[in-house]
C-alpha cells in the first residue's frame, strides 16, 4: 500500500489529500475510521471509491465535500487547504463548485421539484430571471418539465435521483461528490444514473467522485480507489476497453 498515491492525471489536481485521518470518540472508545489517506485527484477525473461497509468510504467523501473535517492531515481543494477556510469561504465553495448526490436523495420534502432545483441558486443569489431559465434548462435536459410541480414523495426513486443530480448540476460545479447514488435504485434505474454521470464527466469535464458498493458501476470511472479499514488498499485504473457506454 503506497503512502502517496498519484492517480492518473488529466489536468491540475482538484483534490490533494495528505495524511488524512478521521477518528470518532476519544480515549479507549476512539474509533479510527480513516488512517493517513493520501490521494490526488485531477480535474476531469472520474474516481470510484469502493470497499466493504465501515471501511471509511463515506467519511472520506464527506471530508472531500467539507461536510466533515479530518482529525489529522490536510485536504486541499483547488490548492486551498480546507481546514483553513472559514464558514463563508466554505459555503462559497459549496455554492459554486461542489454538487452533492446522495443515496437517500435528500430532496427537501416540502418543496416541489422546481423549488428543489431552485434552492442552490437562491443561496447563490442568482437573479430571478436567470434562475428561471436555468431551472427550465435543467428540467428540459432531464425531461422533467411535466413533473416540476410534483413533490418528491410523488416521484419514483430513479426520478428522485435525477432531481438530485439535476440539483447538483444546476450550479455548474467543478466536482460532483456522489455517495452511493444508485444504492436505492433498481439496476435499470441505476444504469441510467451512471450513464448520466459518466456522460457529464466525459462531455462536460465535471470531476466525479463516487462511493459505490456495486462493482459493475466502478467500471464507469477511470480510477478505482479501494479502501480497507480506513486505509487505501489498492488503486487501479479501469481498462479503457471495458469502459463501454453504449447509450452515450
Amino acid at each position: 500500500m503506497s503512502e502517496d498515491t498519484q492517480v492518473q492525471t488529466l489536468g491540475d489536481p482538484i483534490y490533494e489529500l495528505r495524511g488524512v485521518s478521521r477518528s470518532f470518540g476519544s480515549g479507549l472508545n476512539q474509533a479510527h475510521v480513516l488512517n493517513g489517506i493520501s490521494l490526488d485527484i485531477a480535474q476531469g477525473e472520474f474516481v470510484s471509491i469502493v470497499g466493504p461497509s465501515g471501511s471509511g468510504k463515506s467519511t472520506l467523501l464527506n471530508i472531500m465535500g467539507m461536510l466533515d473535517a479530518p482529525t489529522r492531515g490536510s485536504c486541499y481543494f483547488m490548492g486551498q487547504a480546507t481546514h483553513e477556510l472559514g464558514e463563508r469561504q466554505r459555503v462559497t465553495i459549496h455554492r459554486e463548485h461542489i454538487g452533492f448526490v446522495f443515496q437517500a436523495y435528500h430532496l427537501i420534502d416540502e418543496m416541489t421539484v422546481y423549488e428543489n432545483l431552485e434552492t442552490p441558486l437562491l443561496y447563490r443569489k442568482v437573479k430571478s430571471a436567470e434562475r428561471k431559465s436555468k431551472v427550465a434548462e435543467m428540467l428540459d435536459r432531464f425531461s422533467m418539465v411535466a413533473k416540476k410541480d410534483l413533490f418528491p414523495e410523488q416521484l419514483s426513486g430513479g426520478q428522485k435521483q435525477l432531481v438530485g443530480i439535476a440539483r447538483a448540476l444546476i450550479i455548474e460545479p467543478r466536482v460532483i461528490l456522489a455517495d452511493e447514488p444508485t444504492g436505492n435504485l433498481h439496476s435499470s434505474q441505476g444504469d441510467k444514473i451512471m450513464d448520466l454521470l459518466s456522460g457529464l464527466n466525459r462531455d462536460e469535464g465535471v470531476t466525479i467522485v463516487q462511493v459505490t458498493h456495486n462493482e459493475r458501476y466502478t467500471e464507469y470511472g477511470h480510477t478505482v480507489v479501494e479502501l480497507l479499514d480506513g486505509s487505501i488498499n489498492a488503486v487501479s485504473q479501469v481498462e479503457r476497453a471495458r469502459s463501454t457506454n453504449p447509450s452515450l
Binding site: 465535500g65 461536510l67 464558514e87 463563508r88 459555503v91 462559497t92 459549496h94 455554492r95 459554486e96 461542489i98 452533492f100 435528500h106 430532496l107 427537501i108 420534502d109 416540502e110 434552492t119 442552490p120 443561496y123 447563490r124 440539483r167 450550479i171
Partner: peptide, 16 residues
C-alpha cells in the same frame, strides 16, 4: 435535521 444538512451542503450559511 436532514433538511438542515442538505441546505448546508447546498451552500446555506448558518445565519441563513
Amino acid at each position: 435535521a436532514r433538511e438542515v444538512g442538505m441546505r448546508k451542503s447546498l451552500g446555506a450559511l448558518r445565519s441563513q
